[in-house]
Structure formats: C-alpha cells, structure tokens
Write a protein that binds this DNA or RNA. Structure first.
Lengths: 231, 231
DNA sequence: TAAATAATTGTCGAAAATACAATAATTAAT
DNA sequence: ATTAATTATTGTATTTTCGACAATTATTTA
C-alpha cells in the first residue's frame, strides 16, 4: 500500500447538488438547469455548486435553493454522495445530493450565474444530463419514492389546498400505477386532513372538496406509531 | 458574497466511516475502535479513514472493512454525509458514513494501525465517541432500523442457520418491543425460508428447528412486489 | 331537461392482523 | 420412569383492512 503525506489528502473539493421536485399537471417534475459554462456547457444538469471551505453541507444546499427560487425554510433531504475519482473532469470533486419538495406555483424559479435556462421536467422523462447526473437523479428519485411511502412529504408538493383526486394522482404518477378511488380514500382515513367548506372552482364537472394537511396536527395525532403511505 | 479562486476549493479531505453491525446474544451490536492517535486519542470511535485521492468512496469503505475484519464481498450501505466545517480539528474533512451487516462469529475483528482495541457494543448502549461520531452513529442506526423494515438485510447478521425465535428477537431488540410469537410466524410466512432437518444443539429445552435464508430464492419468488418486514 | 363527467359513498367476500389458547418436544430434577 | 419446567409450534376466533366493483350525488354543458 502506498503512503502519502497527510497534507496530500487536502486536495479535494466537494459540491452539493440540489434537486427540486414539484407537482403540476398530474406529474412530478424535477428542476433542471442548462449549464452556461464549461465543462458540459449547454448540457442539462442538476443545480449544484461547490461548497465553500467554511460552509456546512446543509448550508450550501440552502444557498443553492435560495439562488434558484428565493425560497428559504424548505425542508431539505440529504440523499447520497457520489465520489468516483473521475466524475468531474477538472479535479476530484465529491458531491452530496439533496432534494427538496416545493410547490411549483409558489415562486418563479430563475436562472442564476451558472445557468442559462431552467425547466421543470417530469421525472419519467429526464434527458441526458451532464457529469454523472443521470445516476444521481435516478438514485435520488428512487429515494424520493421510498420516502413517499413512509413520510408525509407529498404535501410539500401539493397545493396548500388540494382535492383527494390530486392527492391520489400524485401517487399514481410516482409509482406509475392506477389506484382505486374508493380504496385510496379508505387508506388515507387515518391521516388527519382538514376538510374545508370551500370547493374547487372553474372545473367543468362536480367540484371536489378541498383539503389541507397540517404537520403539527399530524405530529399530535400520530402518537408513537408511524403512519404508512404504502399505496 | 465573497469570491475565491477555483483552486481554493480544492483544499478539503474526505473520510469514510464504516459502521459494522452484528447480532449476538440477542443484541444488535456496533463495532467500535479505541483510537490510538491524536486527535481524540483513547476515545471510542467509529472505524474510518481518509479516502485516497484516486479512490472511490465505496472502495475506501471496502478497504476499511477488510482491514478490520479480513472480509470482502460484504454488502455496504451508504448512509449519510457529515460536513460541518469544524467537525475535524485538523482541517476540513467531510465524512461519508457507510454500514455493513456481518456475522460476528464469522471472523476475528482485529485492531489496525489506527486502533488499539476494538469492541462490539450494543446499539442501545453507545458511549461518548470521538468527533461527531455520536451523531453519525445515531443517524445511521435510525437508517438501519428503517431498512430492516423494508429489505431482507437482517439475515446478514443472523447465523447462517437460525431459529425463528432468534429471528424474532432481532426485531424485538431493534425496535425495543416484544412481539407475539404466533403472529410473528404468520407475518413471515411469505418469506421463502429454507427449513432444515437439523435442530438446535445444547439447549436445555425443546430444540428449535433451524432455518436459512437464500437471497436468490428471495429474488425469484418475489416477482415485482416488494416484501415488507414491518413487525 | 338530459347527458356527461367526475366526486363520493357503500357493499361484500377475501385476506391479514391481533389476542389468546392449546399442544408438542425436550431437559433436568425427583 | 415420572414429572416439572421451559420453550417450540400450531390453532382458533375476532376484528380490521384490502380489493374489486357498484351505486349514488353534484355540477356543468349541450
């Protein structure tokens, strides 16, 4: 085995890639940016940046999120790290991937210094991406799907007030399978949803009732047992 | 916002911390090492090491695992990364934590260059550790518990041939709750366990039948549906 | 007013979960 | 050899959930 000096280890950089997922028109979408610099100029990519030497990983992820969306206080989930020595052409860069779930309509995502153009792309139609970003994206989408089964994070993507059908369609899209309406409603009976008097507007059929989800209610009612969102 | 040169980003190091979990005497245990060097000399810690500049993360985790146990071909699970700027007193070191499940009896864990002494410690009794290792350990144990619900990884810790009671007790210890024997056996009916003719030896009561788990059988019988290990 | 559309609720048999009881096999003590 | 002790293993009965499907309701548009 070879030996190198202690200081020779301190020659790497790390980056944070921050995937944003949202839900619109019945599809879960990821925010991609078109790179405006080398390497991989003009490729679609996951938004990300190098982490400053005195910055925590979560901090960097929040910074990127804010640059893109103006949003703060969004729940960030760390996904995985990727460290193949050759994954970045300009040096050793290990990346830590994060994801956050947002309401697409709540803000205007804007291109930033490193990006030309941005786009919300359905997670089932991701194009070829820069670097190893297809691997990162696929891995993170899998993790998202796992978490959707176990934690009430879907509500971070749904509008503040949503119909039960919208709720159901989110799961149908995520797992690419259709679900029985009546049975879906039975399965979610234990989730404390707040029913509003208000109804859907502007639809050309019987309007659905609107519901919302309260995280604090959820914590209170849950007790020690954890909910299931296995659909 | 401040600006620094591109090259100033390449001043960090990476480490991999590799948690080993095993099961013996009814307890899930983690392998800890007593550090034999500064910083945190003489503290208990999670085994880990810096990653070489041209080494992949998984490769480094496998190397550490082999140094400690001589084992190769053990399934490694990446857990999380920790990157607080001050987490290491000697420089910026971001660490990626992994865990692996092993059969404690299958090998003799040996101290290595960086360790004096090693010890298998029940995961419910972890002492104060070096660096931010208590945070890493706690986070990783949570992840382990989650995965035990969803993937058939418990069998990597159980002996090659095990009794159903041992199997059950693993879950009882993990989630710190007792389970009904009869109902446990019904819940695991769908798992393709191979029953042996052989029975327990040297016990002072009715000996239990021995079972084993075949990963390939599991994959075959499973089809597309994923098993549940929610106990 | 009727047709169309989607929301909402109900039914019923099958399957799974839960609580608890009964039986079987083995060792150790008498 | 008999019995108590201990743990393995199987069974039963009740309740709850699942899954497929049918029926009903509210609203818009033709």
């Amino acid at each position: 085995m070879y030996r190198i000096n202690f200081s020779d280890f301190f020659t790497s950089a790390f980056s944070v890639d921050c995937m944003l997922f949202g839900y619109s028109q019945g599809q879960i979408k990821a925010l991609l940016i078109k790179r405006a610099m080398e390497p991989y100029n003009n490729f679609w990519a996951i938004p990300g940046d190098l982490v400053y030497p005195d910055e925590d990983l979560d901090e960097a992820a929040n910074r990127i999120l804010k640059d893109l969306t103006g949003l703060t206080d969004v729940g960030l989930h760390q996904a995985q790290s990727f460290g193949h020595p050759k994954r970045h052409p300009q040096g050793r860069v290990v990346t830590v991937s994060y994801f956050a779930l947002v309401r697409i309509e709540d803000f205007n995502a804007k291109a930033s210094s490193w990006a030309d153009e941005i786009s919300w792309v359905p997670i089932h139609d991701i194009p070829v991406l820069a670097f190893d970003h297809n691997l990162i994206m696929a891995t993170t989408i899998e993790l998202l799907k796992q978490k959707l089964h176990v934690e009430p994070i879907c509500f971070d993507m749904l509008p503040d007030r949503f119909t039960l059908s919208e709720f159901q369609q989110l799961y149908e899209y995520a797992y690419n399978q259709s679900l029985d309406k009546a049975n879906f409603r039975k399965k979610i009976k234990h989730i404390p949803l707040l029913a509003h008097d208000e109804k859907q507007q502007m639809v050309k059929h019987r309007p659905a009732k609107l519901f919302s989800f309260s995280h604090t209610e959820y914590i209170n009612k849950q007790g020690l047992k954890d909910y299931q969102f296995k659909m």
